[in-house]
């Protein structure tokens, strides 16, 4: 594609400071982040217009400008600024830029017309770019929120003869927690299992309510002849429980479900060992 000749880079270079302050003045609110983004964008816009075409902002020449806006857009969206507001930030550059062009080329209306058109195309594309980044960021945030809000739904699984596991996933604030814990107790009675592993890897926050649910379940299981192991206690959770002052007493705790399973097998008189290396080891057991 032929390079469109444009006076925009020159105009930006000479009048950057005044354009920047006019642009920032257009914003409803100001702050260091906004000022920084506006300054960086004007620099990147000039670079892009110098080496690339204003027809399309997709090329390598516009990479820096796109990056500046991507970062700004993500930052703003995380702070709860709407996609429309983020796009308005970039669209509001038009007015001061057009005013500048009009002032500089008041004697050559054909240049003003051409450059206003050039600038409009580029700025509109940048506004679309910020909008799509902002929307994507919000979608990611919402997806994360939803995963934390997940209603606790947990089946009791049998890992081995005499070994049950309850992998808890979600928050334990609702009434359903009671039901899930009771399911485990019923399953202990039904199967006569001697060991139950409660895995809390999927529980985002362990506070005193969660701790109380765990302690109650452990005590009830004990009355039914089963020992509980609590697994999935991540380092940050362990540190927090200690500060809360929760005493897990003599409950066995393990970092991972695998560690807990090993202990459970051991208590049932079983052990996992490597196959003998001779002749490539024993054949793989038949599936059943």
């Amino acid at each position: 594609m032929a390079q469109t000749s444009t006076v925009i880079p020159e105009a930006l270079l000479k009048h950057e400071a005044s354009l920047l302050s006019d642009w920032v003045a257009k914003q409803g609110k100001t702050g260091p982040e906004l000022h920084k983004a506006a300054r960086e964008f004007l620099g990147a816009f000039r670079e892009g217009a110098q080496s690339g075409s204003l027809d399309s902002i997709d090329g390598a020449a516009w990479e820096h400008a796109r990056e500046v806006l991507t970062d700004f857009s993500i930052e703003q969206s995380r702070q709860g600024v709407s996609a429309v507001e983020v796009a308005t930030f970039i669209l509001s550059l038009k007015e001061p830029l057009f005013a500048l062009l009009q002032r500089l080329y008041s004697q050559q209306p054909e240049i003003v017309a051409r450059e206003v058109w050039n600038a409009t195309r580029a700025i509109d594309q940048f506004a679309l770019h910020t909008t799509s980044v902002a929307l994507k960021t919000r979608e990611e945030l919402i997806a994360r929120q939803q995963s934390e809000m997940l209603e606790l739904s947990t089946p009791v699984v049998k890992l081995w003869d005499g070994v049950l596991a309850l992998p808890l996933i979600g928050t334990l604030d609702s009434e359903r927690t009671q039901v899930v814990m009771e399911n485990l107790l019923e399953e202990i009675v039904r199967s006569g299992a001697g060991v139950a592993i409660i895995d809390i890897t999927g529980v985002p926050t362990v506070d005193t309510l969660v701790a109380q649910h765990l302690l109650k379940t452990v005590a009830a299981a004990r009355l039914m002849g089963a020992e509980c192991i609590i697994s999935g206690i991540r380092p940050q959770i362990a540190a927090t429980i200690v500060h809360l002052g929760v005493d897990l007493g003599d409950v066995t705790t393990k970092a991972t479900l695998a560690d807990a399973f090993r202990i459970a097998l051991y208590r049932n008189g079983l052990q996992v060992t490597a196959r003998a290396a001779r002749n490539g080891g024993a054949p793989e057991p038949a599936r059943g």
Binding site: R78, Q79, D173, T205, V206, D207, T208, L209, P235, Q236, I237, A239, T240, H243, L244
Partner: peptide, 22 residues
């Protein structure tokens, strides 16, 4: 997270907030 807290500090303030919120 936005203020750049490490995971363990995040967990502590979230847990404290959970207690008082309840």
């Amino acid at each position: 997270d936005r203020e750049g807290f490490r995971l363990v500090d995040q967990t502590k303030i979230v847990t404290a907030a959970s207690e008082i919120a309840r």
